[in-house]
Design a protein around this nucleic acid. Sequence first.
DNA 1: CTCGATGCAAACTGTTTGCATCCCA
DNA 2: TGGGATGCAAACAGTTTGCATCGAG
Lengths: 136, 136
Amino acid sequence: MEKYVKILKDNNMKITSHRINVLRYLDKHCTHPTADQIYTDLKTNNPSLSKTTVYNALDALESHGIIQAITISGSELHYDITHEMHHHFYCKKCGKIIDIEFCCPNINKMSEYGHEVEEVHGYIKGICKKCIKKGS
Amino acid sequence: MEKYVKILKDNNMKITSHRINVLRYLDKHCTHPTADQIYTDLKTNNPSLSKTTVYNALDALESHGIIQAITISGSELHYDITHEMHHHFYCKKCGKIIDIEFCCPNINKMSEYGHEVEEVHGYIKGICKKCIKKGS
DNA sequence: CTCGATGCAAACTGTTTGCATCCCA
DNA sequence: TGGGATGCAAACAGTTTGCATCGAG
């Protein structure tokens, strides 16, 4: 059984080819794509695909905690497969999102506040290495 | 000279009453308001105020680093006066944004990556204390 | 007097909704 | 076969843009 089928099955989600494709796309691309990027890329091999379906699939996957929405850009959502905690760097110039491998040890302190923590996002914004080089 | 006038002057920004009002609003309200909330509240005492002006003022203040846009909700921008580094908790139920007083000691590690860091945002999402109580 | 700030309306973008049809379980 | 998934179009929300007018410096 394919890896993605298993993930869907384990989460009691109906198995559809679109969901598998979206999931595989996010697994294979570490670019933190937007719904539109996923839609455009998948549509080339699957012309009947609708953008609504991509939104539906992303919502379903997110609500099961399989993927996460990244709100770093402020204008559109980017998506990431949920795995070990890591942070993100957002380049204000080229818009690229880069994985940052450390994470904050103070997160455990959150329990002191009495809120129920479901997600932790570390967003660092600035100018990326490449754009600095280009700019100078 | 009023505090807010000084801030604008120090940043070589033209002093206008709208900008002062937006700045004062953000200083007095720790609610991380959206552009629309600021607009609605300021409009009651200043009926001729336009939403475009609020957007312009927020953009100008942000580009000078006086305020920061918070992208935690994913659907609309919230604003915060820039002061000591702190993080934010977002309640998925009531939508409230709550200040979190700690910040991550690993931020200094960012220099290792070669990117130029301008902003650091720590976003924690879940269910807030009040909503937990209400829910049970 | 000049250039940036303002206000209005229209445009734009990403996302959501309504509803008929389709297809997995 | 039933209920959730799909696809299309229209609706929506937040933000941006164009442009004429206003007002701070």
